[in-house]
């Protein structure tokens, strides 16, 4: 009996740490999302107002609607681009060879760059006057000459996607490479013997076997894309207009530019709910019994 007590006693410090640093702030922000609390009026939280913030967000806030659309568009293009590029690169790097192993080795570098710095470097590269990419795009494809990338609503979002994909593709390539390395070789070889061309082997054997890994990569990337914030701050500042204001950036704006803590918490919790849903899905997928 005493062993049992001791067992739980030893867990207390860790539990307190988790409660204090994770669950407590979450709980506070959750309750805040049901209160009226504008820092411009009071430093202490105001009265509870029920679901009012959530109702405002859902029915009566063009800014929120805009951020939702921007985020959805961003996530869709970003995740697709990252998945396709990571898969393609992994398939190319899968073969043995000096060039392949060298590339695999340097692949992790972009991921080591802080996302804020990625934003800043991309801002320079896409600068209208002296950006190397602006120049390159114009040189390769003349109609693109003189495009102010970060001044155009759609182009700015694309640049944001591009900067994020640049950061994530190499890392996700490594994950897919790991998945590929774990596949048994015989089914692919059997397909070749059965008369399949390489693209048929890929479609009929490799991709189905790789699906669990691709699903995990897809969900993870969706989670990270939903939280897109750093590069918005350092690359576009949400503009032009509010064409690159993501949900995370909107939360920041509401809280620290307009000082509406209650509403900011509500929007943050809408984002959190989406992330939690994905996290549950992800966990199920990862913990599912492998079928072999």
């Amino acid at each position: 009996m005493r062993d049992r007590t001791l067992k739980y006693l030893l867990l207390v410090p860790a539990a307190v740490l988790v409660l204090g640093t994770t669950l407590w702030p979450l709980a506070v922000s959750f309750t805040t999302s049901f209160r009226d609390w504008r820092l411009t009026r009071s430093v202490t939280p105001g009265p509870f107002i029920g679901f009012e913030h959530y109702i405002t967000a859902a029915t009566d806030d063009p800014e929120f609607l805009n951020a939702l659309t921007v985020t959805a568009t961003f996530v869709l293009i970003d995740v697709t681009l990252t998945l396709v590029c990571a898969l393609g690169l992994a398939l190319l790097l899968r073969r043995a060879g000096v060039l392949q192993s060298l590339t695999r080795a340097v692949l992790i570098l972009p991921f080591a760059v802080s996302p804020a710095l990625v934003g800043i470097s991309f801002r320079f590269m896409f600068n209208a006057e002296m950006g190397v990419f602006t120049w390159l795009a114009g040189a390769v494809f003349p109609p693109l000459q003189g495009v102010v990338w970060l001044g155009d609503r759609s182009a700015a979002l694309l640049v944001l996607v591009f900067s994020d994909a640049w950061r994530w593709v190499p890392y996700m390539t490594l994950v897919v490479l790991g998945g590929l390395a774990a596949l048994p070789r015989e089914p692919e070889e059997a397909a070749r013997m059965d008369g399949a061309r390489e693209w048929q082997v890929l479609r009929d054997v490799t991709l189905p076997a790789l699906l669990p890994v691709l699903a995990i990569v897809g969900i993870l990337k969706t989670v990270f894309a939903l939280k897109m914030f750093d590069q918005v701050v350092t690359l576009t500042g949400g503009g032009p207009g509010s064409s690159t204001v993501t949900l995370a950036y909107l939360v920041y704006s509401i809280a620290f530019r307009w000082y509406d803590m209650g509403y900011a918490s509500a929007v943050a919790w809408i984002l959190t709910a989406m992330l939690m849903g994905l996290a549950v899905w992800y966990t199920r997928l990862v913990l599912r019994k492998p079928d072999a």
Binding site: E186, P187, A190, M193, R197, D204, P208, D291
Partner: peptide, 17 residues
């Protein structure tokens, strides 16, 4: 392999899971 027109039974089966 495809162009050699040979059928093979693999020691470790090589089935499509």
């Amino acid at each position: 392999p495809r162009e050699r027109d040979i059928a093979m039974v693999f020691q470790s089966y090589g089935l499509y899971p």
